[in-house]
């Protein structure tokens, strides 16, 4: 059994080497396909990050005049928290706001330098209020405006997160659709190329196959090398893709963090490496064996 398997691998590999050009073309398209599938996977994480980021954003931010005592603001926080529409109220002190801002723009020299130039802390203490329901914004806002502490309030900001999230979702949906359609088209091309290559091998091995049949070689042993030929192409393509993504993310990943601070794609990739490998090799083996099986079924009938 192991001897037969070893030989099937050996012959499958020889078959590939007989048509190097075709083999390279097939593996190239397979790499493209698996890369896009990987991209789709990483893109889902990006989407998840953006959505939670948006959802975590405050609904209403109440900024207090400079010099308002912290104890007073905390009292106000308590009274707001008691309102039934309120999900969460966070107090952000002047210092917290400063730290958060400089943390967020750590990489940006222009901003950090101008912040240092000011010399003082230009930020205001605030209460960040989240409601359960976007529709209760105005009610909460107007009750703040009518309240006794309104004279301490510098300004109130509203964040219209709903339309933003909806826009994001529709963009994500179109990107997903385009990528999936491309993946399907590329899969078809990859399967077509692999199929064609295996069919050629079957044709050029006609005599060998006939003799194997006549001396009683079992059907699956005759088919084995052709099946393995497809699987090797798929596995090779998966391996190349893994290496490409691994190397790129390892070196470029930290730089990508600047684009979307807080989103760490390269860490996500390496933390989920088992799943990534499963997806990439799964896709490679699946596409490879599908093309083998189609050509075996069409050209190696028993």
């Amino acid at each position: 059994m192991t001897t037969s398997l070893k030989r099937a691998f050996h012959w499958g590999w020889l078959n590939l080497k007989r048509q190097v050009g075709m083999a390279i073309a097939t593996v190239f398209v397979l790499v493209l396909t698996i890369s896009l599938i990987t991209f789709l996977f990483l893109f889902q994480e990006t989407t998840r990050f953006l959505t939670t980021e948006l959802q975590e954003r405050v609904d209403i931010a109440v900024y207090f005049k400079d010099g308002t005592p912290e104890t007073e603001i905390l009292d106000i926080k308590n009274s707001i928290t008691k309102m039934p529409e309120i999900k969460k109220v966070d107090f952000v002190s002047k210092e917290d706001a400063y730290l958060k801002f400089s943390e967020r723009h750590k990489g940006n020299k222009a901003i950090t330098e101008s912040l240092e130039e000011i010399g003082t802390n230009p930020f205001l203490a605030s209460l960040n209020i989240q409601t359960f329901d976007a529709s209760s914004y105005s009610r909460v806002a107007s009750s703040i405006q009518r309240s006794a502490f309104y004279n301490l309030v510098e300004k109130i900001d509203f964040l219209q997160r709903k339309p933003v999230i909806e826009r994001l979702n529709s963009i994500v949906l179109s990107i997903n659709t385009i990528v999936i359609i491309t993946i399907m088209a590329l899969s078809a091309v990859a399967v077509g190329l692999a199929f064609n290559q295996i069919r050629n091998t079957i044709y050029s091995s006609k005599e060998e196959i006939e003799i194997m049949r006549l001396v009683g070689v079992s059907n699956w042993f005759i088919r084995g090398p052709f099946l393995i030929q497809g699987i090797i192409s798929g596995g090779l393509a998966a391996f190349i893709t893994v290496a490409m993504f691994g190397v790129t993310l390892y070196f470029m990943g930290p730089k990508l963090n600047v684009l979307l601070p807080g989103l760490n794609i390269h860490q996500f990739f390496f933390n989920n490496i088992a799943l990534v490998l499963l997806i990439q090799f799964g896709a490679g083996f699946l596409l490879g064996s599908i093309s083998s099986l189609i050509s075996i079924r069409s050209y190696l009938k028993v």
Binding site: E207, E208, E210, I211, R213, L214, V215, G216, V217, S218, N219, V302
Partner: peptide
């Protein structure tokens, strides 16, 4: 059955009129 045919053929040796050697 087609899966049984190989087993039958293994019990038979054949010399073909056109040899069927791999060139």
């Amino acid at each position: 059955k087609s899966s049984h045919l190989p087993l039958l053929r293994r019990r038979i040796g054949a010399v073909f009129q056109d040899y069927k050697l791999l060139q």
